[in-house]
């Protein structure tokens, strides 16, 4: 599959950007062959619909690791426009709340230590690493994930630009890259300086150097950086 140049955004490409799997563009290619109709790989993982022999192997370990009765806390926030309430162990990161409790698996867990940026989401419009913050710290906050930026039918301009410029390969870092890229343009507009900003007294411009510096918290092992910068530059131009 190619999504370079001006090729229109196909629904399949849009899905890959909306919720890329670890196989990205070759989404579910291997799973499709062995699954029952209508069951996705994720369903299989989430529901525990595993072969009997595997469940038997897992049972003792699960028993041995049974935690002491957990004390949970209620947290209410708005995620992608929908009010949500969860009872959570205070240890739950915002990332795990989104992925494991709200099943919003578009946001990815990469390093889980704030180094890779795959977990980037917007909280009250500001990009943060959702792995390095506790869900209970976000009472009353407004969270936007990749699922809330756009839909396959109605892409966010940054999603469309990533497709047009081929700003991804495996797709795993892409939701974080896109959330970060959207926020970078807002930060530029708000006058936030960066290490690449020459004159602190002037407004920083959306140059390639600015984009690259500001995106350094989002790692892409496939090395799609130059295409990501192109995508961002196009959206920045269209907004100017």
């Amino acid at each position: 599959m190619s999504s370079t140049g001006s090729e229109p955004a196909s629904p399949r490409a849009a899905r890959a950007l909306h919720e890329p799997s670890s196989h990205g563009k070759e989404r579910n290619a291997t799973v499709t062959e062995c699954k029952s109709p209508g069951i996705t790989r994720r369903d299989l993982l989430v529901t525990g619909a595993v072969p009997p022999v595997l469940s038997a192997m897992r049972a003792p370990a699960a028993k041995a690791e049974a935690p002491s009765p957990a004390t949970t806390m209620r947290v209410a926030f708005v995620v992608n426009g929908t009010p949500r309430e969860l009872d959570l162990d205070p240890r739950t990161t915002l990332l795990d709340a989104l992925r494991e409790h709200l099943r919003l698996t578009g946001t990815k867990k990469g390093c889980d230590h704030g180094q890779c940026g795959a977990c980037t989401v917007l909280v009250d419009g500001v990009r943060i690493n959702s792995c390095l913050t506790l869900a209970v710290m976000h009472e009353g906050d407004t969270v936007t994930t990749i699922e809330g930026l756009g839909t396959p039918e109605n892409l966010h301009p940054m999603q469309a630009a990533f497709i047009k410029h081929d700003g991804y390969q495996c797709g795993y870092c892409t939701p974080g890259q896109i959330c970060s890229a959207v926020a970078v343009l807002d930060e530029l507009k708000a006058g936030v300086p960066s290490h690449a900003t020459g004159d602190l007294s002037a407004a920083a411009e959306a140059t390639h150097m600015e984009m690259r510096e500001r995106m350094s918290g989002n790692i892409c092992r496939c090395g799609a950086y130059s295409n990501i910068a192109e995508a961002m530059a196009e959206v920045a131009r269209s907004r100017a």
């Binding site: 704030g114 940026g117 980037t120 500001v126 990009r127 943060i128 690493n129 390095l132 913050t133 970060s180 926020a183 970078v184 930060e187 300086p193 960066s194 290490h195 900003t197 602190l200 500001r214 995106m215 350094s216 918290g217 989002n218």
Partner: peptide
């Protein structure tokens, strides 16, 4: 001070 801050960490981390 502004220069030192933006020389550290990443945009996401500096936001938090």
């Amino acid at each position: 001070l502004a220069r030192a801050i933006v020389a550290g960490a990443s945009g996401q981390l500096r936001n938090k």
